[in-house]
Design a binder for these strands. Structure first.
Lengths: 116, 116
DNA sequence: TTGACATACCTCGCCGCTCGATGTATCATG
DNA sequence: CATGATACATCGAGCGGCGAGGTATGTCAA
């Protein structure tokens, strides 16, 4: 019933880019990271994340490289490129602007009892 | 190129409900209202709005009634029901929570130079 | 009066996004 | 050596938003 699944739509790429801005990550790790950071309120699924990563790579926003974990298990890390940083900046601005506008409309008339 | 179209996904119903919370409105009016309130950054399209209104009516969240404009032109007004108010409250909470979480993740590490 | 334009409502099909299901491979553990 | 966690990947279904198209009425100017 929670429309989180739906709200998520459109901000997934932004979230992925934001994660990569803090350091190289591999797919499985990003899912866990987002789950933790969002207090489990939203969880990016594998079927969503991997296609996004492939698209970002194809667009030159990220670069992928393989690296073995200490365990020996192979992992595919992603690194944010200059192009990706630009994309992140754009999407971040768009999100801030959009979310503030929606919040303003939604809380209009109501007591401004939100602390942000 | 602006991903606003995509960001909008999931918050459309909330926006419609929020408008109706301030008074009865008819479809065409809501589109203009949202366009104005959002400073033209996002615009709900007719092909999006009318189906939403019909669904909300079917679900009992709004009640529709016809009323002629001073000009004589017929208009279909929508009124928020108790059920709709509850729905609005739920979606509003979900939105606030979701948007704050996304903003937190996105601005993480960056200087907190946002004034709200 | 007639044609163009704005208002006002509606529906249909396409497209893009997300997810569940499913598949594969490797490593740790009992 | 079987089970489960890790890790990556793909595909089809389902849904939401939009563009395109249709209908009807009112206004206004030529």
């Amino acid at each position: 019933m929670t429309p989180n699944k739906n709200l998520l739509s459109g901000s997934t790429t932004l979230l992925v880019l934001s994660l990569l801005a803090q350091g190289d990550r591999y797919g499985y790790e990003m899912i866990a990271a987002l789950d933790a950071k969002s207090d489990h309120t939203f969880a990016l699924k594998e079927g969503t994340l991997y296609p996004i990563l492939h698209t970002l790579e194809k667009d030159g926003a990220v670069r992928a490289y393989d690296k073995a974990a200490p365990s020996g298990k192979q992992r595919r890390y992603y690194h944010l490129t200059k192009k990706g940083e630009t994309l992140l900046r754009e999407q971040k601005e768009a999100w801030i602007s959009f979310s503030q506008t929606v919040t303003a409309i939604v809380t209009e008339g109501a007591a401004p009892a939100f602390a942000l």
